[in-house]
Design a binder for these strands. Structure first.
Lengths: 186, 186, 186, 186
DNA sequence: GATGAATGAGGTTTCATTCAT
DNA sequence: GATGAATGAAACCTCATTCAT
């Protein structure tokens, strides 16, 4: 039931947009009475938050899974950074419809927590990578924060705006970006 | 009159947030009747759009002014990139209240156009710089696009979230980021 | 407009009862949009309060008018107390339908203020009478308070419950009641 | 079980007020499922009625007990009327919280029956007293009705509104009131 | 041009009640 | 008998927008 409602919420969100995301419509879509919604979620905004949390976790998991499938991370392999970026892009593309709604229609407050969680998770991964790569100059935490913020926006906008940049070219850019930070190592 | 309304709209937006940004409240703040609003703006969303356009222009102008004041851009001076980033940060900080509302509460659709205009302007500047710097590998337009997207998010989030990174350190990171792209030139 | 709404509210209250007293129904009855209600009244409960205040004033005025029409009050005339009581009964009977709703369906909180105002007004009148009548034993203010509370309930219930007591007999009882308090004078 | 529910209903009524008196809350308080409520009570209003009946009986019993404890009623003892009134006040004060809810928040329809029962019981007692006291003028039943209605309201309001009248003074007023009716006997 | 009273569709939320288990 | 998840009607209120003055 909770499952059905969350799923319906996600569908309505993607199909109708946030402006039209009403509790009644969600109830309809879930083939459930409006009252039932409130047995499991205290209010509308919580419902959105839950959908966001789900999605954030999905993305994290997808990225992690891709990396795991790719075998152990080799810091010296220049392909590593590409693999990470590639995994992220794929994860975002998995539900581009939802991504668009979230990024373009949802007031950020609604998905701030979920986004933060995702950023933190990625940042931690990255910190490990950076330190293993022997990047020493500057504050590694600051560096990780900057890269994550940078990559986040670039990846999202690439998926949403479809600029005239091939996926391969984009991955090159990511490598360059990371290389820039790593460049001064040794 | 138009002026008064736009100014009122901005005030209401910053003071009360987007949720409470109602046409009636704007009319009140402007000491104007709600009907008069509609003599100059077809609907509420247009009003927001106009405020956004204004603000976007303000930022562009501020950045341009800062750069002009700093004298001619010297592509070989590593300080140049710092100057640009610094100007951008200052411009964003000039009305952090509005920045927060725009980034956290406004559905992106509302300010998409303004944001796009700003991005384009900066991208063009950057393209010149990159080409002058002799960056040749890869597609320079793709490169410019990526850098702009990256910098945009990093700068905004730094202003809004106040992470534990000094302004100086942040500027260093920007240099590194730009350096990374320039690094492989020869 | 305000007038129309208040009148409609009163009609709905009497006709449908407090349970069915909804803002939409009032709007319908007033042939006005629900939104218009809220241009003049901040919320539903205020609307009820206003109706109550009106009615309380009507009763006061009716009583005062009756007394004025009856000529100057003669404290020594045993008929005086009958006149007052008679005026009150008539005033209550003027809109017995509303009286019933107020007394039987309205949570007292809704009409507490109006009732209090009425009680106070009557109490002050009574205090004058009592002191003129030379009632000296006991605290005259306490006495007035007690009589008002006593008369209030008796009168209301007589109108609402139609007990097997003629109007004349009831007025006799009121005289006796007042006489009881005056009895021990001299 | 029935017991537990009634007790819970009373607790909720006093603690949360009538507005918040919901069947679900009562069920919670009784640690019982909402469905079970409906096995013993056809609907919410019946539940309230039962609570009211209980309470009405309690008051009657308390008054009766007080009188019994005071020994046989002596019609010629002017203290008798005080004793009755005193017993009533004490009974009302026993659960002033409930009294307030009943009088101020409950639509009278909900407790009309219980109140009526109480009034009748007291009226019968009083009729005996009045006839024994040799009050002959007027209709003794009318007289009893009037006194009961008068005393009821005065007593309740004294308990609820705490006017600046001492308990002793109030009892004096009651005596005077009763005396007024008896005064013209002989 | 300016006004501002009027609109009315529709959103979120509550809660008494039911019925399959 | 007991449960408690599910129901769904309906309530209050908001606010972008209009149009007669």
């Amino acid at each position: 039931m909770v499952e059905r409602i969350i799923e319906a919420a996600r569908i309505v969100l993607v199909r109708d947009g946030y402006e039209s995301f009403t509790t009644n419509r969600v109830a309809d879509e879930a083939a459930v009475s409006p009252g039932s919604l409130y047995q499991y979620f205290p209010d509308k905004s919580t419902l959105v938050t839950v959908v966001m949390d789900r999605w954030s976790t999905e993305i994290s998991d997808r990225v992690a899974a891709s990396l795991a499938a790719a075998g152990p991370v080799d810091v010296n392999d220049p392909g590593t950074i590409r693999a990470i970026a590639d995994a992220l892009l794929s994860a975002l593309e998995a539900d581009a419809g939802l991504l668009r709604i979230v990024w373009e229609e949802l007031p950020a407050v609604r998905h701030r927590a979920a986004q933060h969680a995702l950023e933190t998770r990625v940042r931690e991964l990255l910190a490990v990578y950076l330190s293993a790569a022997g990047v020493t100059s500057g504050d590694p935490r600051a560096r990780a924060w900057v890269i994550v913020m940078a990559v986040e926006n670039v990846a999202v906008r690439w998926v949403l705006d479809s600029p005239a940049i091939s996926r391969d070219a984009l991955l090159d850019e990511f490598s360059a970006l990371a290389g820039g930070f790593g460049a001064r190592r040794r």
